[in-house]
Computed example of a mutant assay.
Amino acid sequence: MTRGRLLYVCVRPQQGAAAAEYESFRRATRLDASQLAQHDLVREPLPADVFDRYSGFLVGGSPFNTTDPESTKTDVQKRLEKDLTTIAEQAAAATTAALFTCYGIGVVTRFLGGEVSRAYPEDTGATVVELTREGAADPLFGELATRFSALTAHKEGSAVPPPGGVLLAKNEGCPVQAYRVGDRLYATQFHPEPTPKAFTERMAVYRDDGYFAAHDYEHIAAQVLAASVTEPVRLLRRFARRFGPEQS
């Protein structure tokens, strides 16, 4: 696989939150805008030549849920889940590289025949994640601390990785925090990209979306700002160095 530019794939309807998420990914990977492009999948389908133009994909989070009943999913959600599945298929076949986060892990899990349910939500804020033995030996996760804090806010999750998935990270609240398929498809339940400050700004956008009680915003935001979240961004830097453009 030829190394080249990476593409951030936006699956957030809220454009302000999407723009901030792109900046978080760009800063975390230490890439500039010429090295990390962006595509708004909510408003534009995946281009036909996308796999010729980019060597890897970073998929952001979303207020969508894969466990939403099909009858309630909008045409946009159905289309973007189909496009995300196409990216996952290519990464599983090792013709590209991809890292899916939060909502995206559910899309990948279902594509691979795994189960996603509402049984493993996590509160908004920092949680402790622990690497598995396989995670400690993984090319991307292996340089991280064996236990670290990460930021989460999700309504669904999985008890076990899907068929073919190698469990890389876990915790008690949500047993599948990260897994790998082959050596080019990665998925995390936690958000690897935001700083605590950026996360509180995202919280403000979604304060009425049921992730936490709106009147608790100030209290939860203060806890997030006090959290030490250093390891997840290192994961993104490793991904960018391994699959992205050559860096000096």
Rank of each mutant, 00 (worst) to 15 (best):
L58G: 13
Y211H: 14
P232M: 08
H191S: 07
A214I: 00
A97E: 14
I87K: 02
T124M: 11
I220T: 09
G164C: 09
C10P: 04
T200S: 13
P139K: 07
A221F: 03
P121D: 08
Q14R: 14
D52T: 06
L185R: 03
A88E: 06
V205D: 14
R147W: 09
T124C: 12
V76M: 15
Y206F: 15
D52Y: 01
V176M: 02
H219M: 11
E89I: 11
V229C: 02
R43H: 15
K197V: 13
L7H: 05
I105T: 15
A153M: 14
Y8R: 04
D49T: 11
A169W: 00
G157Q: 04
Q35V: 00
P163W: 14
R5L: 04
F57P: 00
R27K: 12
A17L: 10
A226Y: 01
E201G: 01
H215L: 09
V9K: 04
Y22L: 13
A94D: 15
L84C: 12
R241L: 13
V181N: 07
V205N: 10
G182P: 07
P13R: 05
E134H: 12
F100Q: 10
Q35Y: 01
T95P: 10
R238S: 14
H191V: 00
S24M: 09
V42F: 12
Q177R: 10
V181L: 11
T230S: 15
T101P: 09
S228V: 14
T146E: 13
A187M: 04
P196F: 00
A119K: 14
D138G: 03
T195F: 11
E21C: 07
G125Q: 06
E156F: 01
R202H: 14
F100M: 12
P45V: 01
K73I: 03
T146H: 10
M203S: 04
L144S: 06
L236C: 06
R79F: 05
L31T: 03
A137D: 06
P161L: 01
A226N: 03
L99P: 02
L36T: 04
T96H: 05
F51A: 13
P161T: 03
G135A: 06
A119F: 08
G61M: 12
A198R: 12
R241P: 02
R180Q: 05
K170R: 15
P45A: 09
F51N: 10
G60W: 08
A126H: 05
C174N: 09
T67N: 13
F199G: 06
Y206D: 02
R26Y: 10
A17H: 06
G142R: 03
R184C: 08
T86Y: 01
G106E: 08
E89F: 06
A153Y: 06
T85Q: 15
A28V: 01
Y211T: 03
T230N: 14
N65Q: 10
L6R: 02
A227H: 00
R118P: 07
A88H: 11
S71N: 04
G173Q: 13
E201C: 01
D68N: 14
G210P: 13
